[in-house]
């Protein structure tokens, strides 16, 4: 028996909007720790890892570890039917091939349930070790989204370089080139507006912009985004989900031949 009641149902709606274009089908894993997902995009260069901790749910019952295969497009369609203020409850019986989404309005005057078929998904799980990164950049998520969108109108790839001067996002295309430098800026009114750069050593990596633009669909989940970069590792683009967990995107760098 699985029963997860999330008072801030809009979080789950935002999560689905963030991942549905990157991954078609995925297994949601439910355990005592929480509700999680790990899935790769079809080309196996990007990976999304989601964790919503059990403590973040108002009610969390998961009698045994369960993996539920879902089509994320269909799940997003169902969750779009929930109001932004609705409480969302996920329910599944042991051995069942369906999951039920229950939506309750805050005043309890409207209750809806939607039943979705589960799927068998043969997904490849990757072990992601804890790593020391050469540089970690925290910046406003809206600023990062703006940079990715602006650069993708000029080129297809972005070079992210972190030096003691700041973090530079560069692209080049048929019409020309673009460079955007963000300097560390911690003297802002609100901490979420700060750009903070922790650098152990300079790093410069090249990525496909279309993946970054896909990752920025998670912007509504968090005011800030963290980029963790190392020359030998995929970048980690992390959006913290307040008091619940995180959504992390991993993207393998492009390698010069």
């Amino acid at each position: 028996m699985l029963e997860l009641r999330l008072v801030q149902g809009s979080l789950l709606k935002k999560v689905l909007e963030a991942v549905k274009d990157l991954v078609n089908d995925a297994n949601f894993d439910c355990s005592a720790t929480g509700f999680s997902l790990q899935a790769m995009d079809s080309s196996h260069v990007a990976l999304v890892a989601l964790l919503l901790r059990s403590e973040g749910f108002e009610h969390y019952r998961c009698d045994r570890n369960i993996s539920m295969g879902m089509n994320l497009g269909n799940m997003a369609k169902m969750l779009k039917c929930a109001g932004n203020d609705d409480i969302i409850t996920l329910k599944a019986d042991d051995g069942s091939d369906v999951v039920t989404f229950m939506f309750e309005s805050p005043t309890q005057d409207k209750i809806a349930d939607f039943e979705m078929k589960l799927m068998d998904i043969d997904s490849e799980h990757l072990g992601i070790p804890e790593a020391e990164y050469h540089a970690i950049v925290r910046m406003p998520s809206s600023e990062f989204a703006r940079i990715c969108k602006d650069l993708s109108s000029i080129g297809d790839t972005v070079v992210i370089s972190v030096t003691k001067e700041g973090v530079k996002f560069s692209t080049r295309g048929d019409i020309g080139t673009a460079n955007i430098v963000c300097r560390q800026n911690t003297t802002v009114d609100k901490p979420e507006e700060a750009t903070v750069i922790e650098m152990n050593e300079p790093v410069s990596l090249t990525f496909a912009l279309r993946y970054f633009n896909s990752f920025t669909k998670a912007t509504p989940l968090s005011n800030t985004v963290t980029l963790s970069l190392s020359s030998e590792l995929p970048v980690v683009v992390e959006y913290k989900i307040a008091e619940m967990g995180y959504i992390r995107f991993y993207l393998a760098p492009k390698i010069e031949d």
Partner: peptide, 14 residues
């Protein structure tokens, strides 16, 4: 020319 590496080049399959 630049190539895109797959994630399995970095992370082990469980």
């Amino acid at each position: 020319d630049i190539f895109q590496n797959a994630l399995v080049a970095y992370f082990d399959s469980k």
